[in-house]
Amino acid sequence: METQVKEPRYKLPKESLRVGIIGDIIFEAIILLIFAGLFVLDFLFKWPAWIGIVLLILFIVFVLFSVIGYFTTVIDHRNWRYDIDEEYVQLRQGAWFQKDQLIPVTKIQSVETKQGPLLRKYKLRKVEMETMAGDYSIPGMPEKEAYALRDEIAAYAKAKEEDD
C-alpha cells in the first residue's frame, strides 16, 4: 500500500524568474530613491552626524539584503514545483526549507488567473486557488497553460465529496 507519491513534475517557466527579478529591481529602485532623497536632505540641512551614520548602516544592510534577495528569488524559482492530476494538487517550495503540500482537488473552492503589468509583458498569468484551508498560488505560467490549468482544476474540482 505504501507506494511513493510521484514527485511534482512541472517547473515555473524562465520568464517568471525574469518577472520576479524585475519586480525585485523595481522595489529596490524605489528604496534606493528614498535613500538618495534622505542623503540629499542630510547634506542640505546638515542633520546631526549620528543620523548620517544610521543611514549609512541601514544602506549597507539594505544592499546586503538585496543581494541575498536576488539569490533567494533565483533559488526559490528553481525549486518551485507543482503538479496536478485528477485527485490532487501538489505544491513544492523552497530549497533549504522545503515545504510540500498535498491538496485534494475536491477541496478546491475556486480558481482564478491574474495578471499584472509585468506578467502581461511576458505573457504570463498567475493561477490562484482557494480552498477551505487557505489560498495558494502558482506565481507565473504562460497564458495558455494558465487557462488550461484553470479549466483543468475547475473540471476536476467539480467532483464534490459527500461531506462538503
Binding site: 526549507f97 522545503q98 510540500d100 491538496i103 477541496k107 484551508a133
Partner: peptide, 13 residues
C-alpha cells in the same frame, strides 16, 4: 484520513 482536507510536509536543513 477522509476528514483531513490538506496536509503539508516540511523539512529544514
Amino acid at each position: 484520513r477522509n476528514k483531513m482536507i490538506e496536509i503539508a510536509r516540511m523539512q529544514n536543513p
